[in-house]
Design a binder for these strands. Structure first.
Lengths: 97, 97
DNA sequence: GGTAGTTACGAATTTCGTAACAATC
DNA sequence: GATTGTTACGAAATTCGTAACTACC
């Protein structure tokens, strides 16, 4: 499980549609579809039900969604916190791109 | 920032030594060293002070360590929760390796 | 000279996007 | 036949480990 996979999962869960999620993530459908399949394979269970309109979360997916959002938020906080700590101590070695 | 990088970071932070952390992670020193350098580069600040005995956490590193542990723990919980949800609904498609 | 981290470099793996496919309405 | 997700496949990018290097006692 990678952070990229979790970002992909959340996007598909929120859009309910691999194509739209891919647009949102600025990648094409196939790699995004593969991210979901890889996650399902790793966890050993489907996360979505494939319906004619797109992708519908299963209970397993609902369970993951909570945690995925929390993880992604925490990654964000971690990044900001470290950058602030760096600024505070004037120890920055690289200016932000 | 990837989960692998965070695992590497925590191991080095706890061991205070790239070589020992590499043994613990069952990889060699160079990739582990690169993980730390990549993280420092991405965050724009050093996380460790290089001392003769090894690697010593800087305040920026201390700040990251808290979040990194929380993220890794949350990933663990997420994995278990989804697997339990799958068992509960009998929807498992792949037996655990 | 021993111990530590880092850089060079080639091989193996992974990941991407285009194109083709499959399935459902 | 239009819309959706998936598989094939070759190219590009990443990541590994061995070997060589650097720095500090």
């Amino acid at each position: 499980m990678s952070i990229t996979h979790l970002q992909s999962f959340v996007a598909v869960a929120e859009e309910g549609h691999v194509g739209r999620a891919a647009l949102r993530l600025h990648i094409t459908q196939p790699p995004l579809s593969r991210h979901i399949l890889a996650l399902e394979d790793e966890l050993g269970t489907p996360l979505f039900e494939r319906v004619p309109k797109g992708m519908r979360l299963l209970p397993t997916g609902e369970a993951l969604l909570h945690h995925a959002r929390r993880i992604l938020a925490e990654v964000d906080v971690a990044t900001r916190t470290v950058r602030e700590a760096a600024q505070g101590s004037g120890a920055a070695s690289k200016p932000p791109a």
